[in-house]
Design a protein around this nucleic acid. Structure first.
Length: 271
DNA sequence: CGAGCAACCTGCATGC
DNA sequence: TGCATGCAGGTTGCTC
């Protein structure tokens, strides 16, 4: 489900209901996600207060008095704040129950998501320690991207989706950003000029900011914390548009499989 | 070390 | 209607 804009949308939606809430207990119905959910959570989280809600890449960090809960939504994860006694449906794997009788419910049919715990600074956690810069930060700029891409001959789409290079850019937004930058997805990283890296950085930032402003992209099941869909889908130029005319030049959008992911592009606009 | 790709899961659309 | 197939927003970790 989520790329960076969707996770950021979820974070913003959860801020108001969760900040300051005190955890009463955690209910783990299915611990087998991407990694096993640490059962120690049962003892660690009761009585802890939620101090902050942060995001690093696609990871959502629930900072509590005693440590940090690290959520990842994988492909199909959803987080919603609902009444603690709401009926439990299939794939409702974890409830973080609060003293005010609400709960943060994690639902994840495909179970590619994760819920982990650390008492250290979260950025030191093995999953977060080697992540690249945030795409919306000043650290992610043309000079940086050019210097990194110079060292790789892999196709540029795989490189911008590599979280060691830059976090948060998944299949939808990588596809869209390459269109807006006029770069063909199969181009080798080390073949891009400085100007193209500049265009790509600009396009990534623009697409992500725009998607956040629209509340993310709802394809199938993504919903915001308040249960509403995201509205970015209407702004997609190439993702899912193969067979349709390019909005810029009318050439039919094509698709190919790259790094085991479907990639759409305009053969005229992207070179 | 980099690059390619299998694997982890379930649900859904499609075609026979 | 039923069944097989392929595809889906992510990421790690195995091979070569």
């Amino acid at each position: 489900m989520p790329e960076l804009p969707e996770v950021e949308t979820v974070r913003r939606g959860l801020m108001q209901p969760l900040l300051g809430a005190i955890i009463e207990r955690i209910i783990i119905r299915q611990s087998r996600l991407r990694w096993p959910i640490p059962l120690a959570l049962t003892d660690c989280v009761p009585q802890q207060r939620i101090l902050d809600l942060q995001r690093r890449g696609k990871y959502l960090l629930l900072i509590t008095t005693a440590g940090t809960l690290i959520y990842h939504l994988g492909m199909s994860g959803q987080l919603r704040v609902i009444a603690a006694d709401s009926p439990v449906k299939k794939h409702d794997h974890v409830d973080l129950v609060f003293q005010n009788h609400t709960c943060l419910r994690l639902t994840d049919p495909r179970r590619f998501g994760a819920l982990l715990w650390t008492t250290a600074a979260p950025q030191l956690h093995p999953l977060l320690a080697h992540l690249g810069p945030e795409p919306l930060s000043a650290t992610f700029n043309a000079a940086y991207l050019y210097s990194v891409l110079q060292r790789h001959k892999q196709n540029c789409k795989a490189l911008i989706m590599n979280s060691k290079i830059v976090v948060g850019v998944g299949n939808i937004y990588a596809t869209e950003a390459l269109f807006h930058a006029g770069i063909h997805p199969t181009r080798a990283g080390n073949s891009l000029t400085k100007q193209q890296c500049m265009a790509l950085v600009t396009a990534i930032k623009r697409v992500l900011k725009h998607a956040i402003a629209k509340g993310g992209t709802t394809l199938k099941d993504f919903i915001q914390a308040d249960g509403k869909p995201g509205y970015f889908k209407q702004q997609l130029f190439v993702y899912g548009q193969h067979g349709h005319p390019c909005q810029r030049c009318q050439t039919l959008i094509e698709k190919l499989s790259l790094n085991q992911r479907t990639t759409a592009y305009c053969p005229t606009c992207q070179r």
